[in-house]
Simulated scan of single mutants.
Amino acid sequence: MKALKIQNVEKTFGSIKVLKGIDLEIEPGQFLILVGPSGCGKSTLLNMIAGLESVSNGNITIGDRDVTHLDPKDRDIAMVFQSYALYPNMTVKQNISFGLEINKTPKDELEATVAKVAKMLQIEPLLNRKPKQLSGGQRQRVAMGRALARDPSIYLFDEPLSNLDAKLRVEMRSEIKELHQRVGTTIVYVTHDQIEAMTLGDVIAVMKDGEIQQFGSPQDIYDNPKNQFVAGFMGSPSMNFVPCDVKQGMNGLVLVLESGGASHELPVENGIEGLSEYVGKKVVLGIRPEQLTQVSEDKPDTMTIPCLIEIIEPTGPDTMVTARLNGVRTVCRVHPTAQSKVGELMPLQFDMSKAVFFDPDTEQRIY
């Protein structure tokens, strides 16, 4: 039995179709991330799972129950909102226990649940405070505590960390990850932050314009994007896209790269049969910054090309250098000790083992 099953779900507002036939399912205990840019329909889909938005077409099943037309209170879900949605006139303890009181939970069980949740989230000293006396991170913990106290079939998180500063966002991300590992609950989590998606999710649904572009594990989506949108959206810094001519070389296919006023031929890894149809045409080379690095003898199966450096950005553990390949600015990840200067040529190694290729017109992956 699936924890959540969504079948051909559509949502229409007037003449505008916001969701265009969504299909996905997750196992009990899985952490599903709905990720995509603003306006892609991810929050609308979450609200439909919660029952806050009606379904124009299709079915939503939680466990063994069809909940498509049930009220939110009958769906056995708990939701954590972006705005925390705490009751300002109630203490932290009252906020956490409110749902239990509505369900007429016995007092001793209620007290035990609140104590357990408060200890789990390390908010025991805050139980008698009002929300206005709490920081953003503390309010978010209380909102999570209120959801955890319910013990539902599925937890729904709607961009819960977007109101926090960068440092606190990283800390809360780790806490949510640890909480999921400890409790083993089923979670559906909406975010536009692909770092959150990569670090938190067991499975990710990448959305664009009301459709799921790709569904799979974080690593599979990162390594094997189905199209140029997914490849560019997942990863920070994002994947480089370099238009290249494809030629038939002496030992196989090669890409023609121009850098620093000189032309170079870059061998293509064998096994991409679809590329043979593009000989004499252009393709888009998709290569991530970590595949363009300083020269290293530990990587024998690479090609070295001198590249003209335009920008140098130290980040601490790495340095990002920007070179121009075929007229396109390309970000490369090098070691901080690598010798590089703006305006000079730097030899860079191209690791083509995980490079991907896209059709320049359809932006679909070439296999």
Score class of each variant (00 low, 15 high):
residue 198 M to G: 02
residue 78 A to S: 14
residue 1 M to D: 06
residue 332 C to Q: 09
residue 31 F to M: 10
residue 239 M to Y: 02
residue 327 G to N: 11
residue 75 R to M: 09
residue 167 K to A: 15
residue 257 L to M: 12
residue 250 M to Y: 11
residue 246 V to W: 06
residue 281 K to L: 09
residue 311 I to Y: 12
residue 196 E to A: 08
residue 291 Q to K: 10
residue 70 L to A: 10
residue 344 E to F: 11
residue 71 D to A: 15
residue 137 G to R: 07
residue 150 R to E: 00
residue 210 G to W: 08
residue 173 R to E: 08
residue 286 G to C: 12
residue 140 Q to E: 13
residue 157 F to H: 07
residue 342 V to C: 03
residue 328 V to E: 14
residue 73 K to W: 06
residue 330 T to A: 00
residue 307 C to N: 11
residue 306 P to L: 13
residue 337 T to V: 13
residue 59 N to R: 15
residue 233 F to W: 03
residue 177 K to R: 14
residue 217 S to I: 05
residue 359 D to A: 10
residue 320 M to H: 15
residue 25 E to D: 15
residue 48 M to G: 00
residue 41 G to R: 09
residue 45 L to I: 10
residue 136 G to F: 12
residue 51 G to F: 11
residue 80 V to I: 14
residue 62 I to C: 09
residue 168 L to W: 04
residue 72 P to N: 12
residue 190 V to I: 14
residue 135 S to K: 10
residue 229 F to C: 00
residue 142 V to Y: 02
residue 132 K to E: 14
residue 163 N to M: 10
residue 90 M to D: 04
residue 230 V to S: 05
residue 113 T to P: 01
residue 193 D to M: 11
residue 142 V to I: 08
residue 148 L to V: 10
residue 76 D to N: 15
residue 348 L to V: 15
residue 89 N to C: 01
residue 18 V to M: 03
residue 39 G to E: 02
residue 245 D to L: 12
